[in-house]
Simulated scan of single mutants.
Amino acid sequence: MTDTQPAVNDRDATVEVEQLDFTGVPVLRIRPARARAHTALLHFHGGGYRQGSPQIFSDSVARIAVACRTQVFSVGYRLSPQSAFPAAVDDAVTAYVSITEQIAPNRLVLWGDSAGGGLAAALMLRLRQLQIPAPSGAFLFSPWADLRNTAGSFAENAMTDERFSLDKATEAAASYLAGHPATDPLASPVLGDWAGQPRIVLQASDSEVLRDDSLLLARIATDAGVDVRLKLHNGVPHIWNLAYPSTPASEQAIDYMVEQLGEMLDPIVRA
């Protein structure tokens, strides 16, 4: 099914929305009218691995896709408790492999927010295990990247983060893992070997409970030799980026995403 609709009030902001199926994994393709040719973002939504869908996030994704001038494939991965770990990772691999039959890996960039950011990070590790060519890079917005949930920011920012908490993280992790150890790097990517991975662009808030997940992942990946770009924003809520362009903070975050995406893709497109 294909639908065409305006993402924002701008003649260049029309997007085509199409529901696809990649070997049983539903994917929503959102294609702006002025998208770069033969490039894409592969998006994984948040929701603690137990809530959310590409449709729920489609408006935010469409607005960001227009800003990035890049089509987005948003993955409807399986959720817990009906489908526990590693179902989401398996679906991410299936979607990636299917998309790279159309778009070269070096023209594809991962993007995930919250649990989706953790899933995008896990996908990078899993692709290397499977010896599948890596994407050009990844954007991780406030990734939930450590399902042990032992970070100090859970307590430090408990009063300033209204969208996530230690209690919610504990419940969501138990539902998703279903007894599997949180120390598995495909569940907690901060515990993985990041050597040889492409650029990672991390954005998080200094006042959210997942702040330390971003800081730890940035340190681990940097120590492994990865090109990590970390921006820690002041006093904004969890996943404020998705409010683009309704707040100055979300505009700043997506402007940085646009800049970094251009560095990743424009030289390849021009080649």
Rank of each mutant, 00 (worst) to 15 (best):
P135Q: 05
A134R: 14
D161P: 07
R199K: 15
F154H: 09
A138P: 00
M159R: 14
L210A: 00
D161Q: 08
L166Y: 11
V190K: 01
L147V: 11
A158M: 10
V209A: 06
A195Y: 09
D193L: 12
F139N: 09
S214D: 08
Q197H: 15
A169T: 02
D167R: 14
P198Y: 07
A204G: 10
A134M: 15
P143M: 04
G137Q: 04
P185H: 10
T150I: 13
N149C: 14
L147P: 06
L186E: 00
A174H: 10
W194C: 04
W194T: 04
E208Q: 13
D193E: 15
E171I: 12
T183C: 08
F139L: 10
A155K: 14
G152V: 06
P133W: 08
R211C: 11
D167A: 15
W144C: 01
A155P: 09
S165T: 01
F141I: 14
A172N: 14
L177W: 04
P135R: 03
T160V: 04
A187Q: 01
L215K: 03
S175V: 05
A173I: 06
D184R: 07
L215I: 10
S136I: 05
M159A: 15
D161T: 06
G137S: 06
S188G: 01
A151M: 13
D212E: 07
D161I: 06
P198R: 07
E208T: 12
D206Q: 07
A195R: 15
A151T: 13
A204N: 11
E171D: 14
S136R: 14
P198Q: 08
A178N: 15
A172M: 14
Q131Y: 11
N149I: 09
P133N: 11
